[in-house]
């Protein structure tokens, strides 16, 4: 099965992240790097996203595209990155997600497969 992991975080997660010392930050990146290396065989396309202040939305209202600055959902949680994951089943995907060293929240979504 193919899933997408959406790496999400809250404002509080961001504050905690910003408070890391340069050393801690290096450690964190090293851990995250190891996670990606360890699961490489199961990972598809993925990216880290730039901050919410860079987001632009296009909303169709009455069929007309309205362009706006900012996020689609103005919530406490926002998506910071994503990756495709190929796993046998949800339990395998969950085991990968549980071992994620980056903190925050991971939303796991199965992908619609072509029939």
């Amino acid at each position: 099965m193919k899933y997408v992991f959406l790496f999400c975080g809250s404002a509080a997660d961001q504050v905690a992240f910003d408070a890391l010392t340069p050393e801690q930050l290096r450690d964190r990146y090293a851990q995250v790097g190891r996670w990606f290396a360890q699961h490489q065989a199961r990972l598809g396309h993925g990216n880290q996203l730039q901050g919410p202040e860079t987001a632009t939305t296009v909303a169709f209202q009455g069929g007309r595209p309205i362009v706006k600055d900012g996020l689609f959902m103005e919530g406490k949680e926002l998506v910071g990155g994503y990756t495709e994951v190929e796993a046998v089943d949800l339990d395998e995907a969950l085991a990968m997600a549980r071992s994620w060293p980056g903190g925050g929240t991971i939303e796991i979504r199965p992908v619609v497969m072509q029939r």
């Binding site: 899933y3 046998v88 089943d89 949800l90 339990d91 995907a93 796991i108 199965p110």
Partner: peptide, 14 residues
């Protein structure tokens, strides 16, 4: 069915 919840006995750890 859609999320792939398996019918299997989890590992000792889980």
């Amino acid at each position: 069915a859609a999320a792939g919840i398996p019918f299997r006995i989890p590992s000792e750890v889980e």
